[in-house]
Amino acid sequence: MKRALPIFVVLAGLLVAIAVANPYFLEPPSLLAFVKRAAPLVILAAGQYFVIVSGEFDLSVGSLVTAEVVIAARLIDGSAAATWPVLALLIVLGPLVGLVNGTVTTVLRVPSFITTLAMLLILSGAVFLWTGGAPRGALSPQFRELGRGGLGPVPWSALILLAAAAAAIWVMRSGYGHRLIAAGDNDRAAALSGVHVARVRTVAFMVSGLSAAIAAILLGGFAGVSAQVGQGLEFQAITAVVLGGVALGGGRGSVVAAMAGAFTLEALFTLLNLYGISGALEPAVQGVIIIAAVALGAVSLPRRKAAAA
């Protein structure tokens, strides 16, 4: 927990800074709107955490989000009746992609950086091949309700986020969570003590795929259909996880901190917007802050080979 503390301090600081610039921010409606905006990234970061803590990368989540939204639009095509079957299909498709990522990584022993990079190429290529270059069709109002609407004042996405967070914390406290961290910390030692490292890692990729499916459903509702909906999300999710103090290379960090990292990133975007540094310089400020946060000991990387393997 000691490692996770800095990110909460940073997050609190950012929220205070936003509140100073915009006093209305702390009132429930705008706070809930913030949570709603942040929910997809937070869920993605939770999924990415499973993969990173097991010692791997998942670069395919961004294009998986795009693929799912584009597929949903094409299959639903505005019809209310198709909404629920398609939702079910999306929820199945995410872990399926994760299963392929995990199997290729663990059984064929391809580095996950490359496996998921290839999956990124395959997904984006295949989806646009299928739709002929541009997204077609439309999402039904029922589908978009999940990302846009809410139960009274509370957005659905906030509730879904809450459920996802509770599930993630519960899983990480279970035997599986301990085996996952053991596999990420030292896979040989874990294997020798009876952990099925390959299976544990493959499940982590499936969790990441599931999180991408949920994020896609929320983003499709919130932002609508476009070919860019998932662009860059993989890097944002990885950044969020690392901001949360989770070590690339595996074995260290908590899922709560990873989700806090995603909130921090979203708070940072909000703050930059408030100060009018939108668009142009936003990536630059983001870059400086990410490097600074990681360098200044929000994370202290373990002293072993820092290679992306």
């Binding site: 990885i238 950044t239 290379g249 990410i290 490097i291 990387l301």
Partner: peptide, 8 residues
């Protein structure tokens, strides 16, 4: 600064 090359 010992930042992982990926992030750096």
């Amino acid at each position: 600064l010992r930042v992982h090359a990926f992030i750096a």
